[in-house]
Design a protein around this nucleic acid. Sequence first.
DNA 1: GGGTGTTCCTTGAACCTTGAACTATCTCGG
DNA 2: CCGAGATAGTTCAAGGTTCAAGGAACACCC
Lengths: 181, 181
Amino acid sequence: MNTAPSSGSTPASAPEQPAPAAPRWLTADEQRVWRAYLHATTLLEDHLDRQLQRDAGMPHIYYGLLVKLAESPRRRLRMTELAMHAKITRSRLSHAVARLEKNGWVRREDCPSDKRGQFAVLTDEGREVLRRTAPGHVDAVRQALFARLTPEQQKSLGEIMQIVAEGLQPNEAGADLPWLR
Amino acid sequence: MNTAPSSGSTPASAPEQPAPAAPRWLTADEQRVWRAYLHATTLLEDHLDRQLQRDAGMPHIYYGLLVKLAESPRRRLRMTELAMHAKITRSRLSHAVARLEKNGWVRREDCPSDKRGQFAVLTDEGREVLRRTAPGHVDAVRQALFARLTPEQQKSLGEIMQIVAEGLQPNEAGADLPWLR
DNA sequence: GGGTGTTCCTTGAACCTTGAACTATCTCGG
DNA sequence: CCGAGATAGTTCAAGGTTCAAGGAACACCC
């Protein structure tokens, strides 16, 4: 049996519960939901990855990095901050920025106040790539997702994803819940 | 710019349409939903990948391959079928099976009726790995997803993901829509 | 039986990701 | 100042993914 492997940091729920709702396997309904989730997310991820690889010459996540930079104050962000925004490791970001730098879309700048630090800065060329490719990407997202869902479904999806994200990364940016436990 | 988003009806959009429902960018609400989606799905994917890498020694998608095989008639599936079930390319599957074979969890068998064909067959050892690791994986999925959603949300999520998946892979198993267009 | 085209699957090179080890810098208590 | 320990970011090696190319078997047609 099982030894409750992860369990460790359950946030709100009382940890001592006998948990009658932890059966060995998923119910038939849950299985259907889970499979639909897996299918949809992998298909969408692949779809967008290919779309961007084709139209912008980079994978989806790299594109996301450029977007984050474009939205940031002086079009720059510290490496660690950027990594957190994008939900990736610093290592991965390091490689990604190296590649984007090679393409001329991002440049690095030393941080004056912390000599360990680096800023990733969106170049004009990077900005231009975004400007050129954003519409196509938005269309792809809209056609694959929003165009197919009712407003109620969109709302529901947002709420659900918000919950899931917070469950996996409790201290989300902007959230300032006191650190229970 | 703005609203009146859905209404678009069919995806078979004529390129010449004025397309009043295709604004340049997402609305604020859509953006929130989209970002929540990206955060949640990348976090969950990473979470499960790490969980399985740690507990079963393979990434999530490889685990999924073993599950598919375990559910199949003689614990075997033709390569192409397996690739379609898992929503991956045949090339990727080829590499994946090579690795799983090296681990002793899958073995290949020639198809007698089609000499081009190969079966991927789950070995006893592979079955054993599944038996050992499935509970932990199910717990992880439950804790990250189902435990946090109301029954209504679960239902809604299932419907939404079903729609999205079908949009991206119209000829899904069971669906037999004629090929309009 | 010799085209022509398709399907099944594999291969190799290029690229991306991961996790751990590593350098350099900062911080803070003595 | 010193040193222990945290933090910022990179690097290395191992592995995973993609894309384009290719070999082999099938199918059909004359």
